[in-house]
Simulated assay, not measured.
Amino acid sequence: MIQQPFGRTGWQVPLLSFGAQRIVDEHHCTEEAAIDIVNTAIDRGITYFDTAPSYSDGQSEYRLGLALQDRRQQVKIATKTHDRTRDGSWRLLEASLQRLQTDYVDEWRLHNMVTFEELDRCFAEDGAVKALLEAQEQGLVKKLSISGHTNPQVLVEAIRRFDFDSALIALSALDHHIYSFAHEFVPLAREKGMGIIGMKVMALGKLGNWYEQALRYTLSLPISTSIVGMESMEQLEKNLAIAENFKPMTEQELLEFWKEIMHLATPQTLPWKAASWGGDSWYQRAL
């Protein structure tokens, strides 16, 4: 599989990376299956894994930790804090390290930054950014990151305030047209030398009928890697088949793809950009 630079970090990451949110009971994936899927992914060249304490109350982290016990040095692990305070974030990190059975994570992310108010809380004197810096100073995390699904301008402001090493952002072919991270955020992130990770590739399954085109679209963007959630060996093989034989989309292919899917660009299809989850109107940006 193609390996690409992860921004200014000096890391190399595979074109396709592993979103571990779905290797849980909630998605009908057993513990045994989860361990097999993760190990097969590593065998095939996937070395970057994304998880979070909020994924099935920590089950995602726990299972990833089980799978990686003997392979920790072969992979990069990113986990997150959804708490906006210093103390709350520290508690989350301590629990994450225990579930992951490791004494450090390669990246620690501010999870799903939606509004400017949340961003201000994170940068307050007792905010989550203080925990990120303290944990990095103590060697418990290597790199610092941020993620966002909704408003690219919130993340633009975040990376103007602080030199995050990477960002995890919504980059499906549908996201391209509504509050577009590809248009509004990626150019500045590249200018700053950040690692850029795409997510929401299949728009929660709404692009399933265009599976190959959807994945090729995101992998064709000027990013470091893209995470895809995988809950079965069949899904892993399907994603690997596309990534291992990857060819960037041509402009003509992209235009034809957009023509077929544009009717899906609605708040119901993109609930992470709706005014309320699953609502019927678009998110209104805070000023």
Rank of each mutant, 00 (worst) to 15 (best):
L215F: 10
K143G: 02
L270Y: 07
L68E: 13
H263Y: 14
A275N: 12
D87Y: 04
G10F: 11
L68N: 11
Q153S: 12
T79C: 11
Q235A: 08
G229A: 04
I46W: 01
A243S: 02
S226E: 04
D106L: 03
I2S: 08
W258H: 15
N112R: 10
A124P: 09
G278Y: 10
G127W: 13
R121C: 10
V105S: 03
T9M: 10
K200V: 06
L110Q: 13
N239A: 01
K192F: 07
G278V: 14
I77N: 08
M113Q: 15
A275Y: 06
L100I: 06
I196G: 08
T115M: 00
H28E: 14
A34S: 07
T250F: 03
N151W: 06
R84Q: 12
E251L: 09
T51R: 03
S56K: 04
V129M: 07
Q3H: 06
M249T: 02
L221S: 01
A167R: 06
D50Q: 03
R216Y: 01
R121K: 14
R121H: 14
W277A: 12
T47L: 03
V156I: 00
L240M: 10
F18N: 05
L100C: 01
L64E: 02
G229Y: 01
L171M: 12
L15I: 02
H176C: 00
M199S: 02
P14I: 04
L215Y: 09
L155R: 03
H183P: 00
Q21E: 12
P53E: 01
H111F: 15
R63S: 05
